[in-house]
Amino acid sequence: MTTEHTGQHAVPVEERFQARIDAEEKIEPKDWMPEKYRQNLIRQISQHAHSEVIGMQPEGNWITRAPSLHRKCILLAKVQDEGGHGLYLYSAAETLGASREEMNQALHDGRAKYASIFNYPALTWADIGAIGWLVDGAAIVNQVSLQRTSYGPYARGMVRICKEESFHQRQGYHIMMTLARGTEEQKAMAQDSLNRFWWPSLMMFGPHDAESAHSAQSMKWKIKRQSNDELRQKYVDQSVKQAEVIGLTIPDPDLKWNEQRGHYDFGEIDWEEFNRVVGGDGPCNRQRLAHHVKAHEDGQWVRDAITAYEGKKRQRKDRQAA
């Protein structure tokens, strides 16, 4: 076993590592860490990064059709932010020794996942509202919790991202509110969108704690700070009020306040649908991935040009030095 000498006692590095985590200290890139901690983090952070980037597709789809110039500007700014969030996260994963190319390849090969919610289509303008309000809302609940994750670069990335997400959720809610206060048709459009996005939003928190494959170890290492079910409950509790205020109805007949628990009870998620979409058979899985592959391949000439230019510059420098 590897040991490091601290004073007179030799403490196994793995114990020191866990002790540091137990003491709420962050792990930083150059620290020793168990290989599985590293792998677990690369999996989670890259999946998070892929979600940001794939998430640009359903929203990007509406940029040219936003109902006003103002909404178009907002949507452009939001989609731009998502690309930035992807960058923060890929960079955090790169501090663990994963390369951008490997992560991209894993996504294209289907080895790496992204948030399943983006496999649902954005059919109407109200969906852009629902994505901001509900999908970003769910992401925020998760990301606020992750600001306390044990890996320093990931935690700091989350702080930066959370600051920007507030704008995302508020602009989405503002779209929903505007529609809900509009004509009967507009209100119906908002309700329809809530109906379609509510359950997939709840699925964003993942399987029940008992069935979650990576949860126990991730909690011990404090990569995750709160369980899937805890976070999901927090999200339901805050969303009910938000729907009420704009006169929309959450599509769950079992939703009701539980005085004893101090939380809302809610219905069971359709786990068959969850597994189907995660497994690749959602409404847009193939389209999302194909688009990402195409965008990457279409950009090959740019990467080639940069490499060629760098090579030329280096040659010129070498010649001058000679």
Binding site: A77, D81, F167, R170, Q171, Y173, H174, M177, V245
Partner: peptide, 10 residues
Amino acid sequence: YRHATHYQLP
């Protein structure tokens, strides 16, 4: 509009 405060909510 990039700032959260741009959106007036109830």
